[in-house]
Design a protein around this nucleic acid. Structure first.
Lengths: 136, 136
DNA sequence: CTATTACCCTATAGATTTAATAGAGTAAAC
DNA sequence: GTTTACTCTATTAAATCTATAGGGTAATAG
């Protein structure tokens, strides 16, 4: 299940990508336009600012704006920041690997085998999709 | 994230598929061999019995056994029974569709667009994988 | 300089889901 | 008719997700 955090985050990015001249947009405006709890959105935008997708400007006329071109923002990065691992199980995660404590040998594990295929197919989608692809 | 329920369920199915002559196996034996809480496994096996993957035999010498050939058990079915929707968001689910209450038009929604691609790629994997593929 | 605007940060609480446990009940086999 | 092993309901503990509250701080305009 995709978390609301990720859902809202992608919607906010899309909204920012659609601005003319990449003008800063206030949190309140994004929240209203996308039907998102403003306070919740605040924390989401903040975490994306920290990872370098966007930046913010304080004071009057301030707000959030993208610091990369939409075509340069890959979904792999977005998902990993907002949702966490792309893999459905830690033992097949490339960036968040963890051993299963109930599994003596993961090379013989049927779940492991299946989840590698699922992870690879998801990765292929996320790698080939940029923010730009989601606008048009 | 894949739930333990699904993980355990697939492991149990794999274990049963590996039995000679498809002899019934007791819950306790599966639980021990796969490091699963016995009571939890009970409920998992029960739900899979109800959907027709396996059957059970009571009394002495009883247990669970497959009623389909491993090559006839598709992962799409297994995942849907144990995990629920394959889609990561209800508005792109084929079998569990639900409208997003925050989204005025899902055809214009960037998340919707992305999640359709992800769903399709996952479906392709699950449709092309049977229990038999996970054994060898 | 100062008032306003709008981002920044921490803490917390309610709701939901997941995972596991307990215990009594029932059907089949020998 | 006793044993074995599946069946079913209820409950609980833990974790996670979503949202809210509220004070703090930096930048800008005039």
């Amino acid at each position: 299940m995709l978390s609301k955090k990720t859902k809202y985050g992608i919607k906010a990015l899309t909204f920012l990508a659609g601005q003319v001249d990449n003008e800063p947009v206030q949190i309140a405006e994004i929240a209203k336009h996308e039907n998102i709890s403003q306070k919740f959105l605040e924390s989401i935008l903040l975490s994306m600012r920290r990872t370098g997708f966007l930046s913010s400007k304080k004071g009057k006329g301030g707000g959030y704006y993208l610091i990369k071109r939409p075509s340069e923002i890959q979904m792999t990065e977005v998902i990993r920041v907002l949702e966490g691992p792309i893999a459905m199980i830690p033992c097949v995660s490339l960036n968040f690997y963890e051993k299963c404590d109930d599994c003596p040998d993961e090379n013989k594990c049927s779940v492991h085998k299946l989840m590698i295929s699922v992870r690879d197919s998801a990765l292929q989608v996320y790698r080939n999709t940029t923010l730009d692809d989601l606008i048009s």
